[in-house]
């Protein structure tokens, strides 16, 4: 069965990029452009992994992470951001991995593979 990945990012270009790249890797991809949208997608779908942006208008990624871990503590979350320094933010420690955004998605894809293999 295909693994289902939920991509949460407010940048449309990035959502599309992740979708195409991850589908090429054989995953099914759900998209959400905000925190609330991500939470509602989680209600109706069985998601295997969440790719979560930190800096989003309204509810930010750290807040989404906290809510996800309260209700769906078994779904791994990869935080994905332009800032390297969030690594030191306590709020991000609950995530399963932390990837700094880059146009080269090799590291991200490897991280996804590693986490899904452990599940």
């Amino acid at each position: 069965m295909k693994k289902k990945i939920l991509v949460v990012d407010d940048e449309e270009g990035l959502r599309l990029l992740y979708k195409e790249e991850l589908e090429d890797e054989g995953a099914a991809v759900e998209l959400a452009s905000s925190g609330p949208e991500a939470l509602s997608k989680l209600e109706g779908n069985s998601i295997d992994l969440i790719l979560l942006d930190i800096k989003m208008p309204g509810m930010d990624g750290v807040e989404v992470l906290r809510m996800v871990k309260e209700r769906w503590k078994d779904i791994p979350v990869i935080l994905c951001t332009a800032y390297p320094h969030y690594k030191h933010d306590f709020g991000t420690w609950a995530s399963d991995a932390y990837v700094v955004k880059s146009s080269d998605l090799t590291e991200l894809k490897q991280t996804i593979r590693d986490i899904l293999a452990k599940k």
Partner: peptide, 13 residues
Amino acid sequence: KNPLVSLGGFALR
């Protein structure tokens, strides 16, 4: 940074 990542990412594709 964000638009750049998608620019570069699509160029790679």
